[in-house]
Design a protein around this nucleic acid. Structure first.
Length: 504
RNA sequence: GGCGGCGUACCCAAGUGGCUAAGGGAGCAGUCUGCAAAACUGCGAUUCGGCGGUUCAAUCCCGCCCGCCGCCUCCA
C-alpha cells in the first residue's frame, strides 16, 4: 500500500487515485530566464522518481510539467541583452531540455508553456470575476483573497494574521495587500495579449490553474513542486481553481526539500549555486562521462529523503561515487564465469527479501534512502555468496534484479566499461569537489581516450608484462607496473587462481 | 512578529511507543594475499540537542528551553 505525505493534511496518507489506476500529476517546472541549478535538478529528479515508481506500481501516469515563459525576469533579461523575449525563452527551454537529458530525467507527457494557454487563462479569469472572486482595476485583474474561505489551508496561514507582520508591499490598486494579480495591464514594450480588460499578460499563478485543469481535469491526483512554492504559488492556485470550479483541485500535494550549501539554501541571491551545466562540464574535465556524472548526482540526491534538506558538499559527492563503485565492482564479479551453484538457494531467498524490502521502503512515501539501504544489503548477500560459489543462472537473475529495481531510482544503468571505477583524479585533488573547484586543463585524462583501442592495448600489454614478472617472482617489477597502471586509473586485483581482474 | 521543519555515532543517513536504534563511508582488528586491491568477519551510539510531563514503558506523543534552517517578496 503506497503512502504519500500530503502537505495539505501534513500527514502520510494512503494513495488512492480518483480514477482507478489512472494518475494525473502536475508539477511546477521552471521559469525560463536562466540556466537551472542543482536545486532544480533535485525537483526534477524527485518527480521523475515518483513517476517511475507509480509506473512500477502499475499506475497509468499522465505527467504534466509546465514552463513559465512569460514573466518579469524574462522581460528583464531580454531588455538587458537587447534581445526579443522569445529568444530568451527558446534559449532556456532548450537549455532545460539539455540538462534533463543529461540527468536522465524523462520528459513529461505534456510540457505546456504558459503562453500557449492564454485563452484558457482569460476564460478562467472571466469566470472568477463572474463568481465574485476577482475584480478589475484599470486593466489589471486581481483575485480578492478574502472571498475564498479556504485561503491559507495549504500553507496553514490565516490571511488576517499574515498581514500583521507582513512584508507585502502595499499597492493602491488592490483592495487588500494580499490580493494577487491574475492579469497585468501591458506596459510599453512588454509582451501582451488582447483581453476583455485590454492588452496585458497573465499573472504567474493563473497559468498553472489553467493548464493543469485543461490537461488533467478540474480535479487531479498529485500536484508537486519545491517547498518554496507552497506559499503563495500553490495557495493561489487553489484559490483560483477551486474558486472557479467549486471542486477540489489537487488531491495530494507533494513538495520536495531544498539543496543546501553549507546549511544554507542554494539560491541565486546567495550566489552559492552550481548550475547543472557547470557540474557536468567540470566533471567531464576530470574524466567522468555524462552518464557517470548523472548517476553520481542521482545517487547523491536520492540518498536523502525527498522532503528533507540535503547538503551539497565534497564529501557527499565522493561518497556517492564510492558507494556506486561497490555496486559496479559486484556487477563485474557477477559477469565472470559461474561456478557450481552451492549458494544459489540462499541467494534466491535474499532476492525475495530484497524485493519486499525495497517495495516496502518505496511505498512509505518514496523512502529512497531506505530503498538504497536494501540494495546495499542485497549487495552484501551477493558478495557473500559469490565467494561460496553461485551458478551463472542465478548470477544473471541477480544482475537483472539490480538493473530493474535500480532503474526505478535511475541507477546501475551504465555499462561497466563506461563506468570507470577509478579515474586518475586522486593525484590532483583530494576529492571530486576539490577537483570541481579547481580544474587544471591538461592534467586529466579525458574519458574518451580511456575507451580507445590504443588505451586498451596498452593496458593489456602492461598486464601481460606484469604476469610475466609475477611468474618469475620479480615482485619489484610487478609492483612497478601496477603502480604505473594505477596512475592511468587502472586498478588490478589478483585473484586466488592466479588470474588478474582489471578495473579501469 | 506569524507559520512550518530540523537536531540520531567521526561523517552521511533511515527508523520505531516495548524485541539487537537500519544502511553506507571513515577508523581499528582479523581472514585471504608475495605485497596490494576487492570481498568477507568482528569492534564501534547503555543512547537518539537539553529539561520536564503523559505512559507499565518514549529517541519516537505533549510542553518548555537551546541551536540551526526554510516560507511569509521572485524562487525547485
Amino acid at each position: 500500500m503506497l503512502k504519500i505525505a500530503n502537505t495539505m493534511s501534513g500527514k502520510k496518507e494512503p494513495f488512492h487515485p480518483a480514477r482507478n489506476r489512472n494518475v494525473g500529476m502536475y508539477v511546477c517546472g521552471v521559469t525560463v530566464y536562466d540556466r537551472c541549478h542543482l536545486g532544480h535538478a533535485r525537483s526534477a529528479i524527485v518527480f521523475d522518481l515518483i513517476r517511475r515508481y507509480l509506473k512500477y506500481k502499475k499506475y497509468q501516469v499522465r505527467y504534466v510539467k509546465n514552463f513559465t515563459d512569460v514573466d518579469d525576469k524574462i522581460i528583464q533579461r531580454a531588455n538587458r541583452e537587447g534581445k526579443p523575449w522569445t529568444e530568451i525563452v527558446e534559449r532556456y527551454i532548450a537549455a532545460y531540455a539539455e540538462d534533463m537529458k543529461r540527468l536522465g530525467v524523462e520528459s513529461a507527457d505534456r510540457e505546456p508553456r504558459a503562453t500557449q494557454y492564454i485563452p484558457d487563462m482569460i476564460r478562467l479569469i472571466k469566470k472568477l470575476i463572474k463568481e465574485g472572486f476577482a475584480y478589475s482595476v484599470n486593466g489589471d485583474v486581481y483575485y480578492q483573497v478574502e472571498k475564498f474561505k479556504g485561503y491559507g489551508k495549504l500553507s496553514k496561514r490565516k490571511s488576517d494574521q499574515s498581514l500583521a507582520g507582513a512584508r507585502v508591499e502595499p499597492d493602491e490598486r488592490k483592495k487588500n495587500p494580499l490580493d494577487f494579480a491574475l492579469w497585468k495591464a501591458a506596459k510599453p514594450g512588454e509582451p501582451s495579449w488582447e483581453s476583455p480588460w485590454g492588452p496585458g499578460r497573465p499573472g504567474w499563478h493563473i497559468e498553472c490553474s489553467a493548464m493543469s485543469m485543461k490537461l488533467l481535469g478540474k480535479s487531479f491526483d498529485i500536484h508537486g513542486g519545491g517547498m518554496d512554492l507552497i506559499f503563495p504559488h500553490h495557495e493561489n492556485e487553489i484559490a483560483q481553481s477551486e474558486g472557479a470550479t467549486g471542486e477540489k483541485f489537487a488531491r495530494y500535494w507533494v513538495h520536495n526539500g531544498f539543496v543546501n550549501v553549507n546549511q544554507e539554501k542554494m539560491s541565486k541571491s546567495l550566489g552559492n549555486f552550481f548550475t547543472i551545466q557547470e557540474i557536468f562540464e567540470k566533471y567531464k574535465e576530470i574524466g567522468y562521462s555524462q552518464t557517470v556524472t548523472a548517476e553520481i548526482l542521482r545517487y547523491f540526491l536520492l540518498s536523502t529523503h525527498y522532503r528533507s534538506p540535503i547538503d551539497f558538499s565534497d564529501q557527499s559527492l565522493d561518497q556517492a561515487k564510492l558507494a556506486l563503485n561497490k555496486f559496479y565492482i559486484m556487477f563485474q564479479k557477477l559477469g565472470e564465469k559461474g561456478v557450481k551453484g552451492s549458494a544459489d538457494a540462499g541467494l534466491s531467498r535474499s532476492l525475495k527479501t530484497f524485493k519486499t524490502g525495497f517495495t516496502k521502503a518505496m511505498d512509505d512515501d518514496f523512502n529512497t534512502a531506505e530503498a538504497i539501504a536494501e540494495l546495499q544489503k542485497l549487495r552484501n548477500e551477493v558478495n557473500n555468496n559469490i565467494t561460496l560459489g553461485i551458478s551463472k543462472k542465478i548470477a544473471t537473475n541477480v544482475e537483472r534484479t539490480f538493473l530493474s529495481y535500480g532503474k526505478i531510482l535511475g541507477l546501475f544503468q551504465i555499462p561497466l566499461k563506461i563506468w570507470q571505477f577509478e579515474v586518475p583524479v586522486k593525484a590532483t585533488a583530494k576529492s571530486l569537489y576539490e577537483a570541481l573547484a579547481s580544474v587544471t586543463a591538461g592534467t586529466k585524462t579525458p574519458y574518451e581516450s580511456r575507451l580507445s583501442e590504443d588505451f586498451e592495448k596498452e593496458i593489456n600489454q602492461l598486464v601481460a608484462a606484469r604476469e610475466e614478472a609475477r611468474k618469475k617472482k620479480n615482485w619489484a617489477e610487478a609492483d612497478r607496473i601496477r603502480g604505473e597502471l594505477a596512475r592511468k586509473g587502472v586498478i588490478l586485483e589478483d585473484r586466488p587462481d592466479g588470474t588478474t581482474r582489471v578495473r579501469r
